[in-house]
Amino acid sequence: MSARMTAAPAISIPDLEALIREGVPLVGNFGVSIDELVPGRVRMRMPYKDDFVRPGGTVTGPAMFGLADVALYAAVLSLIGRVELAVTTSMTINFLRRPAPVGIVCEGRVLKLGKRLAYGEVLLFSEDALDEPVAHATGTYSIPPHAPVSVTVSGYRDGGAD
């Protein structure tokens, strides 16, 4: 996918943040916010909370996994619009280094969008060390039948084979 985008995302940041709060309330209660949303890509952040610290003084894996999952959801919806029943079919996360007890920033992107499946990745970073990822996640989303949204990204088109 080219870095130069040629269209607006298929869902707005305020609509997506509301959907996360209301439709995915566990992660919505994390205080997640969206910094940037373009077709096929999202940059989000999860603020530090004492509830996210596990023994050893690091951010807990389930909080980072929830952030990665909702980031991929956001990246997919940026291409297909508000299709609430798009669901995770698989997700894998690799924890690369111990994050400090600070906020977490993540960058998610769709690598392949088909008619029924979307595949993407998410990199997670500690707010205080944005040059070295603390985790890397990959996942697949199942996309139910929906009215198509025409979004073209330079060098990338919706619709390949699944």
Rank of each mutant, 00 (worst) to 15 (best):
C106K: 07
G66E: 06
V110D: 01
G103F: 04
I93V: 14
G56I: 11
N94P: 00
R109F: 07
G81I: 12
R54P: 00
M91F: 14
T58I: 11
V110M: 04
G103Y: 10
L113D: 04
R109S: 08
R98V: 12
R109W: 04
L77A: 12
L117Q: 15
G61R: 04
T58F: 06
A74D: 01
R82H: 12
L85C: 06
R116H: 01
T60G: 11
V83P: 02
V59Q: 03
L79I: 02
G66V: 13
N94C: 07
R82S: 11
L77D: 04
R82P: 01
R97Q: 13
G103K: 01
L72D: 12
D69L: 05
R116D: 08
A63V: 14
I104C: 06
T58H: 11
G61A: 13
T88W: 08
V59N: 02
I93S: 07
S78V: 03
R109C: 13
Y73F: 13
L72M: 07
A100G: 15
L96P: 05
E84L: 13
V53A: 06
L85P: 00
T60E: 08
A75S: 11
F95Q: 01
V59M: 13
N94H: 15
S78M: 00
G81N: 05
G114T: 09
V102D: 15
I93Q: 11
I80F: 11
M91L: 09
M91I: 10
